[in-house]
Every structure is written in C-alpha cells, then in structure tokens.
Simulated scan of single mutants.
Amino acid sequence: MKLWKRAAAAIKDQKSLLAVGFSRRASYRNTDLEAAIIKATSHDDSSVDYSNAQRVYKWIKASPLNLKTLVHALSSRVNHTRSWIVALKSLMLLHGVISCKVPSVVGEIRRLPFDLSDFSDGHSSLSRTWGFNIFVRAYFAFLNSYSSFTADQISRTRANLRSDKVDSVKQQLDRIQKLQSLLDLILQIRPIADNMKRALILEAMDCIVLESINIYGRICSGIIKILPAAGKTDAARSLKIVNKATSQGEDLAMYFEFCKGFGVSNARDTPQFVTIPMAEVEAMEKMVKSVEKDEQKQEEEVVEKAIVLLEKPRLQTIITDKWQTFEDDEYCFSEKAIQEYHQDPLPLVVSNQPVCYTMPDLITF
C-alpha cells in the first residue's frame, strides 16, 4: 500500500511538471523556478529536496521579479493539494524565503499567499492524519504572523532611515511584545500524535527550533537595550515584559526537552541565552513601586478634597424662654380680630382627609 501511494504521489508530481512545461508563457512566470518549486514540495515524505530549495532561494535573491512566480506557483500548488506533505513542505520553503533577509522580497510578502488555517489531509482517514493537520495549522498560524511582522519591521526601518529617526521607547516595547506573541505561537508547533515520528516532521522541527532560539534571543536583547531607557511612564509595561520573558524562558527550556526526547537534532544541546541583568530588573521594580505610591497618594488627595466639598454645616438647636412674635400672630390674637370672628364665625370643617394647598406659581408670568 505504501509503495502504491508513493507511486501515485510521484505520478502527480510528474503531471505537475508536465503542466508547467506546456503552460502559457507570461511575463510573471519563470518555468525553471516553477519546476524547482514543484520538486522542492513533492509528495515524498521520506526526505526534503534541499538542492531544489536552494535553487528557489537563488532565483529569489537574483531578482525580486521572481517573487511573483513564487507566489503564483506556491499558492496554486497549496490550494489544489490535500496532502499534508505538500502543505508542510510549502510552509518550510516559504519560511526559508522569509528568512533570506532580502528586504525587497520579504517586505512584499506580508501575509502568506494561501490559507491553511483549517487544513485537513484528504488522502487518509482522520484517525491517522489529525496530528499532521494540527501541526500544519499551527505552523501556518506562526508563519503568517511572522511574515507580517517582518514586513512591518522592514517598512519601519526604511521610514526611519529616510527621516533620520530612531524608534521611541513605546515602539521598541511594542516590537518586543510582538516577538513574545510570535514565540507563544511557535511553541505550539509540536508533534502530538504517536505516528508523527517521520523524517519530514523532524526536518520541520529542526527549522522551528532554530527559529525559536532566534526569536527569544531578539526578545532578551531588546529588553536589555530598553531597560535603561525606560522611564516611569513605561516602568509597569517594561516589568510586565520582563516577567513574561522569564516565563517564556522556562517554557522554551521545556520545549527543548520535548524536542530532544522526540529526536530533533537541533535540540540536543540547550542554548545559553543572554541573561537579563537583575540590577536593571530590581531598579525597574523600585520605579514601579514608586509610581504606584505616587498614584495612590494622588487618589487619596482627590478623595480628601471630595469629602471636604461634600461636608454640610451642622444644624444647631437654640433653647430660649422668649417668644418670637410675628405680625400675623399679633393680628390673630388681637381683641379686634376676636370680635370680628364672633360677629361672622367661619364654618368648622372636620375631615379625616389631609388638607392640600396649591402652591402659587412664582415662575410663569
């Protein structure tokens, strides 16, 4: 059965090569490059064709115009395949292109030219391929974000060179946090099924391990550079980044142990990363505490002012044995008023209902 599958896969690759040979010529197409891409992303899961992968890299470095051919050929191949082998090799090939450090190429790729976020292999049952499907999806999620991040950094560098500017502390902190997010994504790429110990998976994990070292090294270097320049306004955010970097260092060490046990060559020796000076971290912690105390003091002062404004004068009770006489009272109890009442007494109305008085309208004229 395995021999039959390999033969069928080889026939598919040959058909793709023949299709390239007889395809219409166009200004954006390079048939030699397309043929190298097909061979580098073949259906063979026993090995990676590094010679054709190197040809692809040379074509891309030779002229940025070949990027159109790469995008067209890879997107067409991935969109028409249902093989986890072809999908994974395409990701590895594009990962190498992004890492080639050619600004004119990397700056134009940005998002990947295909979508593998919901990839599912269609050549075997799900019970056999679910682990490979998850592996491909996780690799795509990382590489898609990594490509966009790299393109943004190249664009920012070009803008700074034109204006003779340097990234602010906030921009540097933003970059470090994005790198930390990328590291979180890359640590999700791992074989989780029992049937995944394949040569191609091991090759892919070798690339992933090297990239994880690179990203974490950039995180630590960025932190060491930014700590002395961070002020009180950035102290809390900087300390949060430092704490996350420490936690990620532990996660990365565990990841290396897993890869080492799985048989990944590049994970045999755990690398020695640049350590963050504790003196700088302690100074940052003191700065954060100082800022928190200042904020707490300001809040207390605001509360005290609010209490003072809300206080009302207390009412006092005055006890006296002297009566205060008003004009109405004098009239009511005068002899003249009593005589008038006896001559024309008012009717006495007794009711259990409360008496309501209508207040005069003093506003409407």
Rank of each mutant, 00 (worst) to 15 (best):
Q153M: 13
N30D: 13
T129S: 12
H95E: 15
S127D: 11
D164Y: 14
F149Y: 14
V56P: 01
T320E: 07
K5F: 04
M284F: 02
K312Y: 13
Q172W: 07
W4R: 12
L93N: 03
L65F: 12
C259L: 10
L348I: 15
I215S: 02
L210C: 07
S168N: 05
T358V: 13
A53Q: 11
S168Q: 01
S51W: 11
S46G: 13
Y139I: 04
I109P: 00
S23T: 12
T270W: 07
P360E: 00
A73M: 04
P347Y: 06
M359V: 14
L315K: 09
I154S: 06
T275I: 14
F119S: 00
K2V: 08
E250L: 14
G122M: 04
L94G: 01
Q248M: 08
H80F: 13
R190N: 06
V288Y: 02
R314I: 09
A245L: 06
S163Y: 11
S155W: 12
G21V: 02
A87P: 00
S46H: 11
A8H: 11
H80T: 10
I224E: 07
I11G: 10
S181I: 12
P103I: 02
T81K: 06
C259Q: 08
A141P: 00
Y331G: 07
M205L: 15
S221K: 10
Q180C: 11
Q177D: 12
H72K: 12
K165F: 10
L348G: 04
Q298T: 15
K289R: 10
T358Y: 12
R198H: 12
T325C: 09
F256N: 00
D44S: 04
G231Y: 09
P191G: 10
A204Y: 06
E250H: 08
S75F: 04
F365E: 09
F135W: 01
P228M: 04
R55A: 13
L239G: 00
R198W: 15
L227H: 03
H342C: 08
L252C: 03
A267M: 00
L161W: 13
K68V: 08
D321C: 03
G122Y: 04
V48R: 02
F256R: 04
K297I: 07
T69H: 05
P113A: 01
I85E: 04
D361K: 09
L33A: 00
V303Q: 07
I276V: 05
K170M: 06
H43Y: 14
R237P: 03
A204L: 03
P313S: 07
P191Y: 02
A159E: 15
E340Q: 14
E108A: 09
I37Y: 05
I219R: 00
T157D: 13
K225Q: 14
F262S: 00
L210N: 12
S290P: 02
S16P: 01
N243L: 15
C356N: 08
M196H: 06
I338F: 15
K89P: 03
N243M: 10
T275V: 14
L18W: 07
L67N: 01
L33P: 01
L74V: 15
A159D: 11
T150A: 13
L143I: 09
R156Q: 14
G222N: 04
D13F: 09
L173S: 06
I338G: 08
S117Q: 03
I208A: 00
I241R: 01
D234C: 08
D329K: 08
S104Y: 09
F22W: 12
Q248K: 03
K240N: 07
Q180L: 11
I213V: 11
T81V: 08
K260P: 05
K101E: 14
A26P: 02
A36S: 08
I241L: 14
